[in-house]
Structure formats: structure tokens, C-alpha cells
Design a protein around this nucleic acid. Structure first.
Lengths: 175, 175
DNA sequence: GTCCATATGCAACAGTGTTGCATCTAGGCG
DNA sequence: CGCCTAGATGCAACACTGTTGCATATGGAC
């Protein structure tokens, strides 16, 4: 995995939208009777300023640029609290660190390329039929955005490695 | 996550089947021109003796019971090699360690409960329609068994927490 | 302003996986 | 069979992600 770093994406949406998103989130924290703190607000701010997803470490770096002195541990605890409140969604991308995004943005299913590590987005309803199937079958409630799907992206697949499988290759094309 | 430890599953299939599986895998290593070593054989043996999936650490423990002195690093490198050869499939279960199983057994999609950590299995073709959809849409080749799906199992869902969402709950039921 | 529950800073830790390097060994060859 | 070399292993040290215990600081209710 060499290049799959998530997009830093400075601030594609206008700042006013981000302001509004943060304000709403802060209101919801208050409505839940939890505390609005510098760290939590800063985390929300960073996430609102990004259209993509960020790892805890990236959030840590960004937060400390704006509000120096916030501890790494605090980022984890803030993210945990925000997730409990439904404001932030955690997604696991392959073997790398967990990534976070605002709940509003949790409408994508992520696809991670096993070879190059790049992340694609698919519509959030991609797995709806599967989810319905699973509920009926075993009562398992799927969280579509909870984990990324693994595979091979088009460009990696188009590379020779996958076009000419070895004669003794296993049954499935991707092995 | 308190109880979601994978099943240790001593040896449900008869030992002869396991022998045959290991022999075939060894033959394939040779056919690829790679070396058959004590460590690699031991790893295959352990996986063949288990109907479930094991973490690298569990494999390490089992291997060392049979062949003491094998180093932790070697387990990782052996698993890596076996995965490259298509003999072993790695699956990521939530935030926990990666799990491994023999390629033959890679016909299940795993479902991890976000609350209790238990793992269910669904048929390997569960995601086939989704996979076909993705290839057509963006050329992304899904590896169905590459990552587990996240959700909430029936018994956790049936617990009060999910039956009576808070009035101000987010849109989705699972947040 | 006072007070208390809770959020934070800090340090130390646990678990998973990786890397560099010296040594050993599998397996091809004579 | 024994020799030889590429590749596998043992070992130690490391990087990274995330967690925990405890003292301190702070949000927000009064």
C-alpha cells in the first residue's frame, strides 16, 4: 500500500456550510446533555472542513494546528463520544487505521483496492438488498458503512498480473 | 467486545481429510517453485485441523505446540507467502487482528456483530449481485471474503438498546 | 463566583504487524 | 551422498494504533 493516503481535501464546500454543520452538531451534543469542549468542537470543525474521511492521527494533526496542546488520547475519546452521539461514523479500511467522517457523510460504501490501497465510493444503498436478505435469513442487521469492502480496482486489475493468471491458478480470478 | 473469540474447534473433520488438504497445498507450493519448510507446513497443518478461522497469534500458539521454536515473525511471513500462493485467505474482522483460513474454506462471508463481537457466516455468494453491479459500474472487482461485514446480530438487536431508540435518534436505526 | 461531574493531559502500557541483519536450510547440482 | 546458493528463519528492535489509570482542569448548572 503505497499511495492510498486519503485525500487531504482542504475545503471543497464553502466555509459557511461547515460552520452550520458544526453548529448543528454542537447543538446536538448539548441536547444530549453532554459537554461542548474545545477538543470536541475542533474535531467537528476538522471533519466538517473535509469532504473525505480522516484517520484519528490525521485529525490529531489538524486539530493541533488550530488548537495546539490537544492530546492524542483526547482525539480518540472525542471521536468515541461523537460516534456514540451519532455525529461521526467510523469506517475500517482494510488493515489500516480506522477513518472517520461526519454522520451526514455516512452515505457511502467504501471500496478499498487491495493492491494500491486507493479508496472508491459507492452509493450507500449498494448493500440494501443484501441487508434485507440477511435480516430475513438470520436477523443480522447490516451496517452498510461500518466496514469497507475489499477488492481490486480497475487500473490494478488491468495490469498484467490479473490479465494472465497462471495456468495453475486457483479457482477464483482474484487469488 | 467480550466474547467474540473465534471457535478453537479442535478437529471436526477427520484427520485424513486434513492430511490430504495439507499434502495438496504442499504440492502446490512446490509447483510454484517455492520452498516447503517446517514452518509453512505447520501453519497449513494447523489451518487444516480447524474448521474456523484463526488469528496469526492463535496460529503462532498452535504451531509452537507442535513445532516449538517457530518465531512469531515467521508465522506472519509464512501466512504472507501462503496468501500470495492462493492457499490461504486473510479476512479482517472489525478492529481486531486479521484472521486466516485455508483457501478452500474461503467460501463464506463473515458478519461481525458490532456489539458482542460474535461472528456469523453467510454463503460466499451473498455479495455476487453486488460484485457484478460494481464491475459494471466502475470496474472494481470485489473480493467477497476479503473483509467482514459489520452489523448487529439478532440477539443484540433484540436487547432494549435497539428496540427503543431515543426520540432524537439519528435517521438510521443503528446509530 | 462556587461546585461537581466529566473531559482532558500525561505516562505507561498492550496488541499487531514490520524491518534489518545474521544465520540456517531446502533443494538443485555434481 | 555432500556442496552450494537463494531464499527462509530467528532475533531484536521498531512503528503504529489504540487503551487505561490517575491527577488535574474545565464546562455548565446553580
Amino acid at each position: 500500500m503505497d499511495d492510498g493516503s486519503p485525500p487531504p481535501t482542504p475545503a471543497p464546500d464553502d466555509a459557511e456550510t461547515a460552520d452550520r454543520v458544526v453548529a448543528e452538531a454542537v447543538a446536538r451534543i448539548r441536547a444530549h446533555g453532554e459537554r461542548v469542549t474545545v477538543a470536541r468542537t475542533a474535531v467537528l470543525r476538522v471533519l466538517a472542513d473535509t469532504s473525505g474521511f480522516l484517520t484519528a492521527d490525521q485529525i490529531f494533526a489538524e486539530v493541533n494546528r488550530a488548537a495546539p496542546g490537544v492530546h492524542r488520547t483526547t482525539i480518540y475519546r472525542a471521536l468515541d463520544a461523537l460516534e456514540r452521539l451519532g455525529l461521526v461514523v467510523q469506517t475500517r479500511m482494510g488493515q489500516d487505521a480506522a477513518t472517520y467522517q461526519l454522520g451526514e457523510a455516512g452515505t457511502y460504501v467504501h471500496l478499498v483496492c487491495r493492491d494500491c490501497g486507493r479508496v472508491e465510493r459507492a452509493p450507500g444503498d449498494l448493500l440494501d438488498p443484501v441487508a434485507a436478505d440477511l435480516v430475513e435469513r438470520s436477523g443480522f442487521r447490516l451496517i452498510p458503512t461500518g466496514a469497507a469492502l475489499t477488492g481490486v480496482c480497475r487500473s490494478c486489475f488491468d495490469s498484467l498480473r490479473y490479465r494472465k493468471p497462471r495456468p495453475d491458478a486457483p479457482t477464483a480470478w482474484w487469488q
